[in-house]
Amino acid sequence: MTDMPTTSRFALPLLAVAQAQKEVTHNEALTRLDALIHPAIEAGPLAVPPSDPVNGQCWIVGAAPTGAWADQENALALWTAGGWRFVPPREGMSVTRLTDRVQLHFEAGAWIAPGVIEPPAGGSTIDSEARSAISTLILHLAAQGLLISG
């Protein structure tokens, strides 16, 4: 899809005046939108493409990508019947990683995972009820993908 007009945010292909085979451009845009509407990735960031992807599966391309992912660092890689499609990330974009349900955010040119929070420990005065409540809160936030429990 070279030399085609595209949208400014995600480079979705636009139809051109008097364009032949408009369905090709339209279908390409729908394929990308299908991955972007509710972005969920199988895993990532990864440098090596998976060997046996299934149509509709998505990954985050990691640093120093190889093979079919070469030169696509940080992009969302979507496998389709027509091969790999890549969508460059935008600042503030969020995706859910399906392997662990963690929310990754694209900030300052990198995919960022939430921080790790350890349950309370130590101290000279131990309040077991407060520690239990804090530990439960950490577990619930981790279950929502908002942080990673230690």
Rank of each mutant, 00 (worst) to 15 (best):
T66E: 03
Q57W: 08
A43P: 03
H38K: 13
P50I: 12
E28F: 00
E42A: 07
I37R: 15
I37E: 13
H38G: 07
P50G: 10
V61P: 02
Q57N: 13
P39Q: 03
C58Y: 03
I60S: 01
I41Y: 01
H38A: 14
Q57L: 08
V61T: 09
L36S: 02
W59E: 04
Q57K: 12
A29N: 05
S51Q: 15
A29W: 01
G56C: 07
T31D: 05
A29E: 04
V61Y: 01
G44P: 08
G56K: 04
P50D: 12
W59T: 04
P53R: 07
S51L: 12
P45N: 05
V54M: 01
I60P: 00
V24A: 14
R32F: 03
T25Y: 02
H26K: 10
V24I: 13
R32E: 05
V24D: 13
N55S: 14
S51C: 04
A40P: 01
I60F: 00
A43T: 15
H26E: 11
S51D: 13
P49D: 14
H26F: 14
N27T: 13
A64M: 08
A64L: 12
L36T: 00
C58T: 05
G44D: 05
A63T: 08
A47G: 07
D34I: 11
P50A: 09
A43W: 09
H26Q: 13
L30K: 12
D34E: 15
H26G: 02
V24F: 09
V54A: 11
T25K: 07
I41K: 01
D52N: 15
R32Q: 12
T66I: 07
P45I: 04
G56Y: 07
T66K: 01
G56Q: 05
V61D: 04
E28Q: 11
G44N: 05
I41F: 02
G56V: 05
V61E: 05
A40S: 15
I60G: 00
P50M: 12
V48M: 06
I41T: 08
E28V: 04
L46N: 09
E42C: 07
T25L: 02
T66R: 01
R32M: 14
C58I: 10
V61N: 06
H38M: 13
E28N: 08
N27G: 05
I60N: 00
A40I: 14
H38E: 14
L36M: 10
